[in-house]
Write a protein that binds this DNA or RNA. Structure first.
Lengths: 258, 258
DNA sequence: AAAAAACTATTTACACCGTACAACATTTAA
DNA sequence: TTAAATGTTGTACGGTGTAAATAGTTTTTT
């Protein structure tokens, strides 16, 4: 299912749907619903019940068409999912207030934290974005915003792309813990802390002598921020990355011809 | 399906299975297969056909038991997937040759690159690890190895944990592009480059004026390394992160009491 | 030795899923 | 008015996870 990559079918059709470039049919009955209604409805279902609740039948029912009518609007569920990804990313395309007065450090921090919040609002996106890039208008617009944060700093185009890409990569990797916790809590009512206390008695029966460093670090880290503090790990890594970026940018500005 | 978090059922049962702490039954017939055979078989299927090909029926057939016999060994497919994750991570638990003579920079680089290769060997792991941490022996052992890379540098325990966690987060975020490309290629025979050429004619019909920076950066980056070079982006971000780590470690060593 | 208990294995069944296919309904161009 | 093009719908198939009932096997208890 998730293995049904859209490249298999018709990548062009997906692009046309993403960019609204499907030529309007000259004859035939008017469609009962628009593509936008389908995608919006699917996103609502995913936000409320998770991505696995988004089935062709359920989306069709939500917008009031028969199950198979779905396929007149979207080639398959794989394309629907890609459309969902691009549409929901509309939240990350606009610069925030004061953007013009921010330096690159503040801008990249904003990009990363905004992306974090986006993933937390729609935890299903974290699962889906492991798949295939979606060349849609909102995806491109959010890439544009991120790139503009590091424009004019002395980085060449390739370094700009690498910066934005690895920052995005990092956020996605870091957010999954927090996203998972929220999804599990939503689904089961059990927090990570409760889960931890459930297995803690068992953990104490284990022999930890093969893991000397872990058994020193684990409890201290655990006491400091509970089972794990994804946000703190995220911020820690972000700081290291940005510190590294500072070094690179200073180097480039010191030798602009390199 | 992927929303069936194991916390829902019985987290303790999973822990017992992970650590081989299920008390041997006193009576009744001998099981036809062992848990290990089931998990190994499931991993083989996932490696060959992707995670979605791993169904209870298929695994049962592969080891030669009836479909429902599966549930004698594993509570549900969610637990099987967790067991797969831990078992396959056995590849990342041993220090490489020369580990003792490496400095922290070399060690962290090894950890990151080895993890990258692990994910590339088993691309389905990338999809699955977005879910829930598995407190199994191999997971713990790989955590131990990573922690030992930054032990004795003047970092406190929390910083050690944060370092290892964010490094792992970063690798996971960065590898997904490469993993996806490989999975798509395996499944469809279409490389990312071919896919790009399929949609390129359409892309040229689009109006890129709303994306000035992207349309400057995109082509240059594209020409430099094709559609995208996940490995290069990975290494770029890794360098920035390690540069940032250097600053932190130097700071800590300059003020050991802080 | 016989009976009971504990366990594994199997069969059947159900409610979902994505979607192929064919018949039908509606709108427009010829 | 007719034919073409399109949207809608019902039926059907093979796949999924797994609940429930049943059958078979081994060990413990009587």
């Amino acid at each position: 299912m998730s293995q049904e990559f859209s490249g298999k079918g018709d990548p062009l059709k997906l692009m046309q749907l993403l960019w609204g470039k499907v030529q309007a049919p000259r004859r035939g009955p008017k469609p009962k619903v628009s593509l936008n209604e389908l995608v919006t409805s699917a996103i609502a279902i995913a936000d409320a019940e998770g991505i696995d609740a988004v089935s062709t039948r359920k989306v069709a029912e939500a917008v009031g068409i028969s199950p198979m009518s779905f396929y007149t609007h979207v080639p398959s569920i794989a394309e629907l999912r890609d459309l969902m990804l691009d549409q929901v990313l509309a939240e990350c395309t606009e610069p925030p207030e004061g953007w013009e007065n921010m330096n690159w450090h503040q801008r990249l921090t904003y990009i990363a934290e905004n992306l974090w919040q986006h993933y937390m609002r729609h935890t299903w996106v974290v699962e889906m974005e492991t798949h295939r890039p979606v060349m849609g208008p909102n995806t491109l617009a959010s890439y544009e915003l991120a790139l503009s944060a590091v424009d004019g700093l002395g980085l060449d185009e390739i370094e700009m792309d690498l910066t934005v890409t690895s920052l995005h990569n990092y956020v996605l990797g870091a957010v999954r813990h927090a996203a998972r916790e929220q999804a599990v809590w939503k689904d089961t009512g059990m927090s990570d802390t409760e889960w931890w206390y459930t297995i803690a008695p068992f953990m104490e029966t284990l022999d930890f002598s093969p893991y000397p460093v872990s058994s020193r670090v684990g409890p201290i880290a655990g006491e400091a921020y509970g089972v794990g503090d994804p946000l703190r790990a995220f911020k820690f890594g972000l700081e290291r990355f940005l510190d590294g970026m500072t070094l690179l940018i200073e180097r480039k500005q010191g030798a602009p011809d390199q």
